[in-house]
């Protein structure tokens, strides 16, 4: 734990989130979708809906709740990246949704909280 860097915490959180989504019946389309507009952690699909997901992982609440870290600015980046993704994959008229998954990792357990439809 002590030597685990911030990046590793994030990676771990994303892994947990992906497994959770698969269990819920979501199909994972992309992970860590990078563009010059920003980044999307997970792009998933459920029925006909495309879901863009931001994963926030924290080990403690010293710097506020994970979901609070998804600011207006971050939402803007997600929105723009999603627009680019839809454009590139030719599905501009698809039904879409933006979600946040927050994960707390403590020594003995992990808590996952899925917040749907943030925009």
């Amino acid at each position: 734990m002590k030597n685990q860097s911030k990046q590793q915490t994030g990676k771990k959180g994303e892994q947990i989130a992906t497994e959770y989504l698969k269990k819920q019946g979501y199909k994972i389309l992309e992970r860590n979708y990078y563009t010059n507009r920003g980044e999307l952690d997970i792009i998933a699909k459920q029925k006909k809906e495309i879901i863009f997901i931001e994963v926030k992982t924290r080990k403690n609440n010293k710097y506020g709740l994970p979901r609070e870290a998804v600011t207006k600015n971050k939402q803007q980046h997600m929105y723009k990246t999603a627009r680019l993704y839809l454009y590139k994959t030719h599905q501009q008229n698809a039904q879409t949704r933006f979600d946040v998954i927050e994960i707390y990792i403590t020594k003995n357990k992990t808590i996952l909280n899925h917040i749907k439809q943030i925009i």
Binding site: A82, Q92, N93, A94, Q95, T96, F98, I119
Partner: peptide, 14 residues
């Protein structure tokens, strides 16, 4: 004056 409120709802980004 009568005003028409036309609403169009589509998929795509919210």
């Amino acid at each position: 004056k009568l005003i028409e409120v036309q609403t169009d709802i589509n998929g795509g980004l919210p």
